[in-house]
Simulated assay, not measured.
Amino acid sequence: MKKQLTFYFVRHGRTVWNEQGLLQGQGDSPLIAEGIEGAMKTGKHLANIPFVAAYSSVLKRAMDTAEYIIGERNIPFFQHKGLNEHSFGSWEGALVSHLRQNEEYQQMTKDPANFQAKSNRGETFGELAKRAMKAIDEIIQIHHSGNILVVSHGHTLHLLLALFDGSTWQNHRENPRVTRLANTSISIVRYEQAENESAGRFVLETVNSTAHLSCFRQK
């Protein structure tokens, strides 16, 4: 095999804004005690996985989650802007319960193909897909084999997992295998590329596993 990688995708731990029902996007808020504990439980669950590298977005909630998972292990840790959460522009920091009444917000959640991010001046799903997949492609170019930890965000990971499974950014929310991801859930994806292939393939093995978080409530 030219390349054989196993990605462990983890959504960041629960934060203050998650608790308050505020939309985060590329805004940020600190992990709460439950988020820290969830990250530490994830680290304990993955303690025997020999990671060759760890990656996170540049947002502090993802970086902190990754550091709690890594713990005392000597794992090279990098940040990549391409793994950042979907930019929601002017909606960031607003109550999700209020935003649900907004027609364009409803379009974002139900009709990603036609969501243009006009009123909030954030990102479209097409823009998110392009930069997130570029980040994954760059990671693949660096590593030839081994296990890689990636800590990112709800919208970004949901879209990536659906793309790996053959969906498009336009119809990714219709993929029944990829559901809304819980905080510090684990999704495992294999990437394989043969010597004579110009591009490889992704295989979803596990999506949104929370067995290691059984003592935590998830919203």
Results as ranks from 00 to 15, higher is better:
residue 152 S to V: 09
residue 186 I to G: 05
residue 55 Y to Q: 00
residue 49 I to W: 02
residue 56 S to W: 01
residue 49 I to K: 04
residue 194 A to N: 14
residue 11 R to M: 03
residue 59 L to G: 06
residue 64 D to F: 09
residue 58 V to Q: 13
residue 23 L to D: 05
residue 40 M to D: 05
residue 200 G to A: 02
residue 179 T to S: 13
residue 24 Q to V: 03
residue 22 L to S: 00
residue 7 F to I: 01
residue 139 I to K: 00
residue 84 N to S: 15
residue 155 H to Y: 12
residue 23 L to K: 06
residue 87 S to W: 12
residue 59 L to F: 05
residue 29 S to W: 02
residue 194 A to Y: 04
residue 115 F to K: 05
residue 151 V to T: 11
residue 192 E to D: 15
residue 207 V to G: 00
residue 104 E to I: 11
residue 114 N to I: 09
residue 7 F to C: 01
residue 16 V to C: 09
residue 169 W to V: 11
residue 57 S to R: 13
residue 143 H to Y: 13
residue 24 Q to D: 06
residue 100 R to A: 11
residue 105 Y to W: 15
residue 36 I to D: 07
residue 24 Q to L: 14
residue 128 L to N: 04
residue 217 R to C: 05
residue 126 G to C: 14
residue 125 F to L: 09
residue 128 L to D: 01
residue 38 G to L: 08
residue 74 N to A: 11
residue 100 R to C: 12
residue 132 A to W: 08
residue 73 R to T: 00
residue 17 W to F: 09
residue 190 R to Y: 08
residue 58 V to P: 06
residue 208 N to G: 09
residue 67 E to D: 02
residue 44 K to Q: 13
residue 146 G to S: 01
residue 136 I to D: 01
residue 126 G to T: 04
residue 85 E to H: 12
residue 14 R to L: 14
residue 137 D to I: 04
residue 28 D to T: 10
residue 7 F to Q: 02
residue 19 E to L: 12
residue 181 L to C: 13
residue 77 F to T: 00
residue 92 E to S: 11
residue 69 I to S: 01
residue 58 V to R: 12
residue 154 G to M: 14
residue 119 S to M: 10
residue 62 A to K: 01
residue 121 R to G: 03
residue 54 A to P: 00
residue 129 A to G: 02
residue 107 Q to R: 15
residue 208 N to C: 08
residue 161 L to H: 12
residue 65 T to L: 09
residue 27 G to N: 15
residue 38 G to I: 04
residue 115 F to E: 09
residue 116 Q to F: 03
residue 174 E to F: 04
residue 149 L to V: 02
residue 171 N to K: 15
residue 74 N to R: 05
residue 105 Y to R: 09
residue 154 G to P: 04
residue 147 N to W: 11
residue 186 I to F: 05
residue 49 I to P: 01
residue 132 A to I: 07
residue 80 H to E: 12
residue 198 S to H: 06
residue 179 T to E: 14
residue 123 E to V: 05
residue 124 T to H: 11
residue 32 I to H: 10
residue 51 F to A: 01
residue 11 R to K: 08
residue 99 L to V: 02
residue 192 E to V: 09
residue 69 I to P: 02
residue 137 D to Y: 05
residue 190 R to I: 02
residue 76 P to N: 03
residue 38 G to S: 15
residue 70 I to D: 00
residue 185 S to R: 07
residue 143 H to A: 02
residue 48 N to H: 13
residue 62 A to N: 04
residue 50 P to K: 03
residue 182 A to C: 15
residue 91 W to C: 13
residue 39 A to H: 02
residue 28 D to I: 07
residue 175 N to T: 00
residue 43 G to N: 02
residue 57 S to P: 05
